[in-house]
């Protein structure tokens, strides 16, 4: 049996949840639990209170209204994969979700949990920076929003403040667009990303490029965007982009991959991801879900 002593509540309303966490010493929010419960078992965190958000119905929803996609705090990766709204308008989110761990994890794990854990190899980070998403928080002082770019402060550190709960993510629809999520793992099965990358190709000829797992926080590669926006993609342009990649990301060597391989692959992934995103924008290219590496 687990030696961990904490209390557990499953409120039905947000206010109730906020009230409980304001009164607890070291409260933790439970959604999918795939990170939290492991950390509790390992003794990495010692909550006195666990607040289960799965009783709050509104958190379970994916909505698309006024060109804003909202993903609730309880929405699992499995829900993101099968959602019609996402398939029709943001297929890259489903593409990404399919690479997160495995079915039994995706049935519980949430995108919001992913960005709250904020480990450098998370998959959702570069997605949200590319989409210029907002993280929606509720707290004792009411609701506030933080841009994805400002959300990630360091490895495992976010802009959340004491007493706050992330209630959802809002993603503005960038108009007709296509994209590509590219993830480097050691094999086809479940793995933590050694490099990941989200490229969006917008219909106005602009691009959004974000890398993950190559720095403590996701890297929105604006210099690369500035280089390629509005341009026809040529071999020379890609070569120039490679040079900028060397400046923009700072991969490290760890047990999963060397910095040399990460750097090399970041370039390959960028080139292939860009081509795939462009082809997809034109109704061609590999189907979403087919890895380009």
């Amino acid at each position: 049996m687990s030696e961990n002593q904490f209390d557990y509540v499953k409120p039905k309303f947000l206010n109730e949840a906020l009230d409980i966490i304001s009164k607890s010493v070291n409260p933790f929010i439970l959604a999918g639990g795939t990170d939290l419960i492991d950390m509790i078992k390992e003794g990495i965190v010692q909550p006195d209170m666990v607040v289960d958000l799965k009783g709050i119905e509104q958190f379970n929803q994916i909505t698309f209204k006024n060109d804003i996609l909202t993903i609730g705090a309880g929405v699992t990766f499995s829900q993101l994969i099968v959602s019609k709204v996402i398939k029709d308008n943001f297929p890259i989110i489903a593409e990404l979700s399919r690479t997160v761990a495995s079915v039994g994890i995706r049935n519980r794990a949430t995108m919001i949990g992913n960005i709250c854990s904020a480990v450098p190899c998370m998959d959702s980070g570069p997605l949200l920076t590319s989409y210029e998403a907002m993280i929606i928080l509720a707290g004792p002082k009411g609701e506030r929003k933080v841009s994805a770019e400002n959300w990630f402060i360091n490895s495992r550190k976010t802009a959340i403040e004491k007493g706050e709960i992330v209630t959802g993510i809002s993603i503005p629809y960038p108009g007709k667009h296509a994209g590509c999520f590219v993830k480097l793992g050691r094999y086809e099965g479940e793995d933590l990303a050694q490099v990941n990358l989200v490229i969006l190709a917008l219909s106005d000829g602009n691009f959004r490029v974000s890398f993950g797992s190559v720095a403590p926080v996701p890297v929105r590669a604006k210099k690369i965007e500035n280089l390629i926006n509005g341009k026809t993609i040529s071999h020379t342009l890609i070569e120039d982009a490679f040079n900028i990649i060397e400046e923009e990301i700072k991969p490290i060597t760890d047990i999963r991959a060397s910095k040399e391989y990460r750097m090399h692959m970041a370039k390959i992934m960028f080139e292939r991801g860009l081509n795939a995103a462009l082809s997809r924008l034109n109704g061609a290219g590999p189907e979403y879900g087919i890895s380009v590496i």
């Binding site: 557990y8 439970l30 639990g33 795939t34 419960i37 492991d38 666990v50 499995s78 761990a101 495995s102 079915v103 039994g104 994890i105 049935n107 519980r108 479940e190």
Partner: peptide
């Protein structure tokens, strides 16, 4: 949660029972 031997169905969906309270 890495190996899947603890898989059970929760409301019809497979989950890792080692990562569920």
């Amino acid at each position: 949660g890495d190996c899947g031997t603890c898989t059970v169905m929760l409301n019809g969906k497979t989950v890792r029972s080692c990562l569920v309270l």
